[in-house]
Computed example of a mutant assay.
Amino acid sequence: MLVLEYKAVVKKAQSTAIDEAIRTSQFVRNKVLRYWIDNRGVGKKELYQYNTQLRSEYKFVNDLNSHACQASVENVERSINRFFDNCNQNKPWKKGYTRFKKHSRSVEYKVSGWKLHPTKRRIDFTDKKGIGGLKLLGKWDIHQYPLELIKRVRIVRRSDGCYVQFCVKVDNQQTAPSSDSEVGIDVGLEYFYSDSKGNHEENPRFFRKAESDIKRVQRNIYKKKKGSSGRRKARGIYARKCLRVTRQREEHAKRLARNLTLANAMVVVEDLNISGMVRNHKLALSISDASWYNFRQWLEYFGEKFGREIIAVPPHFTSQECSNCGARVQKSLSTRTHSCPHCGYVEQRDVNAAKIILSRASGRGGQPQTNASGDVLTTSIGRKSCKSKERQ
């Protein structure tokens, strides 16, 4: 599944209509979830029947396109299935029980409710919410794909405006240069990552660099009167500052992941429990700023796209073992050089760990992992499946 995103030129009345469509989609999702909680054991058919009942009961729900309401039901269904899958797999920590949404930012249409202009980059939403036509700004050419391949259209609201996303069902694989190179990757805080070849990638620390500016604009929010237009504008400035940092992290992770997968036939990483690691309050901000999770996701995505092998291995004792003799050498986080007393091998700590990670791919049963194909799994509600959800 390929996602093409455009910035939308939105008028004030259209912005109000988009907000109303998003709230209606959220309403349908929460009502369907409440129905499932109150009637345990109901299946997919009953949820869709309840959605039909909502459309006949509430006029503002009926004004939203029927496929957009069905998409909200599908989101609930996927969330429930994911919860049962996590329980079935004995996933540590919380299992992700489906929650009610308080602040939704998107509404999703399926194959109806919208009409794409045949030549111009313009889309018209034809339901009764009154969104109308939106001009699209972006470098992608949506017209090169047949309309029947566009399976989803989303309107996403962000702090700097509205965006329209097209989910196109196409084969996104590309031919990459032939390579037999293999590399192990050890992510860290001193360096963004170190590889088994001795290379280091500097940690950009985007949030740390913008932290003082973000805190300044955050303080300005509380200097404004509650409910005033000045406070609303101050919140918008703060949100755009944070959005810029998020985009910087995303682009940085994407660039590095693409270069690694193009240059190497096999990339081996640690299967880190990042949600558990950020429970350490002394390191949580630095770990979040490094954005290891995004980096792992983009590695898997480009691995699928270029036909590369991405392998995740257990992270236990990768920093303690010696890559030369295999002996375990205890060291604290402040010790940045690995010096083995058994064989005399000396290496930078992260490079030594990267070599251990690479050796575990073949020696200790590393498993190829990817969730980048974008296929949406459809299973019955409550079914305990071992299949992992794939990234769209």
Rank of each mutant, 00 (worst) to 15 (best):
Met1Gln: 09
Leu4Gly: 03
Glu5Arg: 15
Val9Thr: 09
Ser15Cys: 08
Ala17Pro: 07
Ile18Gln: 06
Val28Ser: 06
Lys31Thr: 04
Val32Gln: 02
Leu33Asn: 05
Tyr35Gln: 09
Trp36Ile: 10
Ile37Asp: 11
Asp38His: 03
Asn39Ser: 06
Val42Tyr: 05
Gly43Phe: 10
Lys45Gln: 10
Leu47Pro: 03
Leu47Ala: 01
Tyr48Pro: 01
Ser56Cys: 05
Tyr58Met: 07
Lys59Ile: 11
Phe60His: 15
Asn62Ile: 00
Asn62Met: 07
Leu64Gly: 05
Ser66Ala: 12
His67Ser: 15
Gln70Ser: 14
Glu77Asp: 04
Glu77Met: 14
Phe83Arg: 08
Asp85Trp: 00
Asn86Leu: 08
Asn86Phe: 04
Cys87Leu: 15
Lys91Gln: 11
Pro92Ser: 10
Lys95Met: 12
Arg99Glu: 13
Phe100Gln: 09
Phe100Lys: 12
Lys101Gly: 04
His103Gly: 06
Gly113Ile: 04
Trp114Phe: 04
Pro118Ser: 10
Lys120His: 08
Arg121Asn: 15
Ile123Ser: 01
Asp124Gly: 02
Asp124His: 13
Lys128Phe: 10
Lys135Leu: 13
Leu137Gly: 00
Asp141Lys: 13
Pro146Tyr: 02
Glu148Lys: 13
Leu149Pro: 00
Arg152Ala: 07
Arg152Cys: 08
Arg152Ile: 14
Arg152Asn: 14
Arg157Gln: 14
Asp160Glu: 08
Asn172Gly: 06
Gln174Met: 10
Thr175Trp: 00
Ala176Leu: 05
Pro177Gln: 06
Ser179Val: 14
Glu182Lys: 14
Val187Ser: 06
Val187Gln: 03
Glu190Asn: 12
Tyr191Trp: 10
Phe192Pro: 01
Asp195Glu: 08
His200Gln: 11
Asn203Ser: 06
Lys209Thr: 09
Lys209Met: 07
Glu211Ala: 11
Ser212Leu: 13
Ile214Glu: 04
Lys215Met: 11
Lys215Val: 12
Tyr222Asn: 14
Lys233Trp: 02
Tyr238Glu: 11
Cys242Ala: 08
Val245Trp: 00
Thr246Ala: 15
Glu250Gln: 12
Glu251Phe: 08
His252Leu: 01
Lys254Tyr: 04
Asn264Ser: 02
Met266Ala: 07
Leu272Ile: 10
Asn273Gly: 05
Ile274Trp: 01
Ile274His: 03
Ser275Met: 05
Asn280Gly: 06
Asn280Glu: 06
Ala284Pro: 00
Ala284Thr: 02
Leu285Arg: 13
Ile287Ser: 02
Ser288Ile: 03
Ala290Gly: 07
Ala290Cys: 09
Asn294Met: 15
Trp298Pro: 00
Leu299His: 04
Ile310Asn: 03
Ile311His: 01
Pro314Asp: 15
Gln320Trp: 01
Cys322Gln: 09
Asn324Asp: 11
Gly326Met: 03
Gly326Lys: 01
Ser339Asn: 14
Cys340Leu: 10
Pro341Arg: 00
Arg349Asn: 11
Asn352Gln: 08
Ala354Leu: 08
Lys355Gln: 11
Lys355Asp: 07
Lys355Phe: 08
Leu358Asp: 07
Ala361Cys: 11
Ser362Met: 07
Gly363Cys: 13
Arg364Pro: 01
Thr370Pro: 00
Thr370Ser: 14
Ala372Glu: 05
Ser373Val: 12
Thr378Ser: 11
Thr379Cys: 07
Arg383His: 12
Lys384Val: 13
Ser385Cys: 10
Ser385Lys: 09
Lys387Ser: 14
